[in-house]
């Protein structure tokens, strides 16, 4: 179901300073591109990508891989400052001139990482606010 409000992409990080981290991902834009028999999911606000044989598999791989990548950053640095990098120019060029069958997502989630116990509670929480945006809506958003 398409949203009628403009997404405001953001990633918020809260930590207790001793190993517990909460990550709130809000409305990150993802472009889903048909690629032969497969689908390719490319993040726009953050340069992360995944693929799958179906749209659902590409989305699932995006969710799990994205969460695992965040966790790797937390393990290495304790924060996400180096992760917050937008997609390269060629991706944005394709966003402005998308091939046929391109779909769009706005991805939101809450992830809880306990690095002390190294549990995977975060992975079990679904991306609960995935919404398909019409291309025209995204065009309005991006100007």
């Amino acid at each position: 179901m398409a949203k009628n409000i403009e997404p405001t992409p953001s990633v918020k990080h809260i930590t207790d300073g001793i190993g517990k981290h909460a990550i709130v991902v809000n409305d990150l834009r993802v472009m889903l591109l048909k690629d032969g028999d497969n689908w390719f999911a490319q993040g726009l606000d953050i340069d992360y990508a995944s693929a799958g044989a179906t749209v659902d598999e590409a989305k699932k791989n995006f969710e799990t891989g994205f969460a695992k990548t965040i966790k790797e950053y937390l393990v290495m640095y304790g924060n996400l400052s180096k992760f917050m990098q937008s997609a390269p120019e060629e991706v944005w060029q394709e966003f402005l001139n998308p091939p046929p069958e391109t779909q769009y997502l706005a991805v939101s989630s809450v992830q809880l990482h306990n690095l002390v116990k190294d549990d995977d509670l975060d992975i079990k929480l679904p991306f609960g606010n995935i919404a398909f945006l019409k291309q025209t809506e995204l065009s309005e958003i991006t100007g």
Partner: peptide, 19 residues
């Protein structure tokens, strides 16, 4: 991990050209 930047990717059984 390249230049200190990690990336975790779950690949499908058939990896498309874009990846």
């Amino acid at each position: 991990v390249k230049d200190g930047k990690p990336e975790v990717i779950d690949l499908p059984d058939s990896v498309p050209r874009r990846m």
